[in-house]
Amino acid sequence: MAETENKPGSTATEKSDMPITPASKPVNGAAGKTGTWRTFKPVIEKESCKKCGLCILYCPEACIDKELEIDYEYCKGCGICANECPTKSIKMERE
């Protein structure tokens, strides 16, 4: 029962590993591997990139880290990063 008691919203009396009301833990991929939604994927050309960070700033998914690595597992391919890149260093490539 220890595991049950640790579950958010669960009670020992419920004798269940479920919480008593829908209680959800934060995780990456709540909607699954959203990278599979893409038709085009953003690719950063490191040579022309001025590291201004606008792609990081505007990514609605927080899928670009400070090393400018894109998390393709979750990037939905919206293309905002490519559109906003002042040096046109991000190309949208067909998957």
Binding site: G29, A31, C52, A62, K66
Partner: peptide
Amino acid sequence: MLDDIPEEEYLYKGNTACAGCTAML
């Protein structure tokens, strides 16, 4: 790169929002 905006993200990747959703931004 984001000036003094902290790096910590409290919005997790792989949510159910449409691609390009600015509400999530």
